[in-house]
Simulated scan of single mutants.
Amino acid sequence: MFSSHKDLPVLGRAQGGDNGNLTIEENPIDWTFRPADLQGVQGAFAVFVTGDSMAPKYKDQDLAYIHPTTSPRKGRFVLIETAEHKGLIKQFVKWEGETLCLRQFNPDRLLYFKRSEIRQIMLVIGSLDA
């Protein structure tokens, strides 16, 4: 169930590939309906997915809903923002000490990031097909 009015900001686009470029805008680039899981969640937002590295789960132009404070769990999908302000949507695998391990679907491979390279990691709670 979604809210009855568009009150969830769309704050940018998240690149699907490993050379992601997430730009979280200060001002929304659009507004969308808030899903039930984000009702009352301060700081929640959505981003448009670009690229096909996570297809068929997330496809180009899908709208991904982001919960900014829920911790990721193995197998769930996350939006990470790197220290260089690049953004990626990937599947969370695990933390190995100070290293974050994520899975990409296309091509299927694991990606590794040092904790110091990560600015934020946020849970993707769902999406709306483009």
Rank of each mutant, 00 (worst) to 15 (best):
L88S: 12
K57P: 01
V49M: 15
K114Y: 10
V124S: 15
E98L: 01
V78M: 10
A44L: 08
T99P: 00
F45K: 06
R115I: 06
K94N: 14
F45V: 05
H85T: 06
A46S: 10
A130S: 13
K6S: 10
E25K: 13
D37H: 06
G16D: 11
P107H: 09
K86Q: 15
D7E: 03
D108T: 11
T82C: 01
G97I: 03
D7A: 01
A14M: 03
L8R: 11
I125K: 15
K74R: 13
I29P: 14
T82D: 01
P68W: 05
I89Q: 08
W95C: 12
D129W: 00
G17M: 04
D129R: 02
K86A: 11
N19P: 03
R73G: 06
P68V: 08
R13N: 05
E26H: 12
L79F: 14
M54L: 09
Y65S: 05
E25Q: 14
E25M: 11
L63M: 10
Q15Y: 08
T32K: 06
V93R: 14
P35T: 02
V93P: 05
H5G: 03
G51R: 10
R34F: 02
M54K: 13
G75P: 12
K6P: 01
L63C: 07
P72G: 12
H5F: 09
T99F: 02
K57T: 15
Q61I: 01
F45L: 05
K86M: 00
F92I: 12
F33Y: 15
Y58P: 03
K74V: 10
G17C: 04
F48S: 04
A14N: 08
F48K: 11
H67P: 09
K59T: 02
R115S: 14
L111R: 13
S116V: 12
G87C: 04
N27V: 04
R76I: 02
Q120M: 05
R103W: 06
V41W: 08
A44Y: 07
V49R: 04
Q42L: 09
K59G: 01
L102H: 12
W31C: 07
Q120I: 02
G75H: 09
P9H: 00
L128Q: 13
N19V: 01
D30S: 11
